[in-house]
Structures are given as structure tokens and as C-alpha cells.
């Protein structure tokens, strides 16, 4: 019991401390690449955490979660194209767009279960994808280059490598804490209860649909915020952000880390991207190694990285 509580609190805490120290490491060893790479990883970690919230706790296998990255990114990119750089306008707007998209698509998708849910979320993801390819005023297929980054009350915080890293880090930490608190609350218990036995949940007078939809919207909104950050990180937005391959990768990250713990998703995002970077450093055919590795992880690594750490 004692050790379990230690890993439940200690591991995420240690993880965030290590992540907070990355800029220090980068500064000491003068390694700009590590800092930029870590920034990118943390943005994906935000999305993975939000996906784990609905996947691990609510059993909603969304195969269109990448759509929110794209929508958030496009909100920022399109505003920048019209010379609106203020983050206090573009970021809330990106989140609002994603919340609305999640509300509408979630309300329809959550009528279905299982594979049908997987496929209908994929369908909505594809619709968002094709919508952006048709925006010829904003680059269409080729994407849209941003000639700068968002501006936060004239501070230029988005432009510095280190300050931008800490913005992303702060968003990740806040998202993690908010979602963690929610999973521990009555809301989270309803979500998990509905996963285990929906009929019993309804029998005690709770309608799981509303809870699922709320969780779905929340996850979409957070992923949209990550998308807004990604637009700033890459200074470029393109439909490729929301391809179904990307949605698949996000699920892989969550499972790889160990789902249903939130910090597992962060570990998964780190592991996936470091693995991809390392393997592609050895050979351009890195998928030849990664594919079988993924199969082995699924077959023999129950519980993902977290399961391995706990030594089960």
C-alpha cells in the first residue's frame, strides 16, 4: 500500500521535476536541439494526457483525436494570417473551436459503442482533415506558414526557446493536475463506474452519456490548446497535423506508457518520440524495427511502461 501510493505520487512528481530541469541541461551542455525536441515532445504529451483521460477512464477509443491538434493550430495560424498575434485572443478561440467541434461530434459519436465509436470518431477526424485541405486561401494541402509567433501582452515569451518551453511545460502540468483532480472526484468515479457497468450506473439514477460527453469535450479542448502551441512551435500549420496516422500514433503513445494513469501518457509520448528519433537516426527504415517492437509490447508488455516500472 505504502509503495503503491509512493509510485502514484512520487513517479509523476519525479517526472515533472526532470522535465522542469531540461532547459538547465540544455543550457549547461549548450544543446539547443534537446530543448526544441523536448518542447515538441511535451506538446504531444499534452494531447496524449487528454486522450488518456477519455480512453483510460471512460473507455472512449477516439480515433480522431489528432483533429483537435489541427483545429487548434489552424485557429492560431488563420488569425496570424490576418495579423492577429495576441495569444489572449487566439488561444481561447482555438479552445472554443475545439470545444464546439467536440460537443457536436461527441454528441453524435457517443450514441455508438465499441468499434462503431472508433470508426465514427475517425470519420469526423477525416471530415476536419478534408475541410482544411480545401482552405485554398490558407494554403490548402500545402499548409500555412506563420511568419512569427503568438504574442503575450508584448512580453515575447513565445519567442525564447527556454521561455516557450516553460509555457508548454506549464500547460502540461496544469492539464495533468486538472484532469487528475477530475478523475479523483465524483465525476471521475461516474466515468469509471460507467466503464465497468453501465446498467448499474443507470440503475442508481445517473446518466453516463452526459458525463462521457463532458469528458469528451474537455479532452478535445485541451488537445486544441496543444494544437495552438504546436502552431507556434513549428511556425507552420498543415492538414497533416490531423491525418488518421497521427490519431493512431496518439493511441500508441497512451498504450505504450500505460493507460488510465495520465502520467503514463506523458511517459508514452516521451518514449514514442525518443524511440522514433533514435531509430530513425540508425536507419531510414526505422519502422522495420518499430513495427515488431510495437507488436511485442502489446503481446508481452501488459500495462505499458508503467506496468514495467511497477514490476508486474
Amino acid at each position: 500500500m505504502m509503495t503503491r501510493r509512493l509510485t502514484a505520487v512520487g513517479l509523476p512528481a519525479a517526472l515533472f521535476v526532470v522535465l522542469a530541469l531540461v532547459p538547465l541541461y540544455a543550457g549547461v551542455f549548450d544543446d539547443r536541439f534537446v530543448l526544441l525536441f523536448a518542447t515538441r515532445i511535451l506538446i504531444f504529451a499534452i494531447v496524449a494526457v487528454s486522450l488518456d483521460f477519455i480512453l483510460g477512464y471512460g473507455e472512449m477509443v477516439s480515433f480522431g483525436h489528432a483533429a483537435y491538434i489541427g483545429l487548434g493550430a489552424y485557429a492560431v495560424g488563420i488569425l496570424a494570417e490576418h495579423d492577429v498575434w495576441a495569444a489572449w485572443i487566439s488561444f481561447p478561440l482555438a479552445m472554443a473551436v475545439c470545444a464546439l467541434f467536440a460537443l457536436v461530434t461527441g454528441a453524435i459519436s457517443l450514441r455508438t459503442r465499441g468499434v462503431y465509436f472508433i470508426m465514427i470518431t475517425l470519420a469526423f477526424g477525416q471530415m476536419a482533415y478534408y475541410t482544411t485541405t480545401s482552405l485554398s486561401a490558407y494554403g490548402g494541402d500545402d499548409g500555412l506558414t506563420m511568419w512569427g509567433r503568438s504574442e503575450l501582452f508584448g512580453t515575447g515569451l513565445f519567442n525564447g526557446d527556454t521561455s516557450f518551453y516553460y509555457i508548454v511545460f506549464g500547460v502540461l502540468l496544469a492539464s495533468y493536475l486538472i484532469l487528475k483532480v477530475m478523475t479523483r472526484s465524483r465525476f471521475g468515479r461516474v466515468l469509471e463506474g460507467a466503464k465497468q457497468n453501465e446498467a448499474r450506473m443507470e440503475a442508481i439514477g445517473i446518466d453516463p452519456y452526459r458525463y462521457r460527453l463532458t469528458a469528451f469535450v474537455l479532452a478535445g479542448t485541451i488537445a486544441g490548446l496543444a494544437g495552438a502551441l504546436m502552431a507556434n512551435q513549428a511556425e507552420f500549420v498543415s492538414p497533416a497535423y490531423m491525418s488518421w496516422h497521427r490519431s493512431g500514433e496518439l493511441i500508441v503513445m497512451v498504450i505504450l506508457g500505460g493507460m488510465g494513469h495520465l502520467h503514463g501518457a506523458i511517459l508514452g509520448a516521451i518514449a514514442y518520440m525518443v524511440l522514433e528519433e533514435t531509430l530513425s537516426g540508425y536507419t531510414e527504415h526505422w519502422r522495420l524495427i518499430f513495427g515488431p517492437l510495437l507488436i511485442l509490447i502489446v503481446l508481452y508488455g501488459k500495462g505499458g511502461l508503467l506496468g514495467a516500472i511497477r514490476g508486474r
Binding site: 493511441i251 500508441v252 498504450i255 519502422r287 513495427g291 517492437l293 510495437l294 507488436i295 509490447i297
Partner: peptide
């Protein structure tokens, strides 16, 4: 996931 791995490979 496992069959996704097969696709990649």
C-alpha cells in the same frame, strides 16, 4: 495496436 505494428513493418 498490434496490427498497426504489422502495417508499419
Amino acid at each position: 495496436l498490434a496490427t498497426f505494428g504489422v502495417i508499419l513493418f
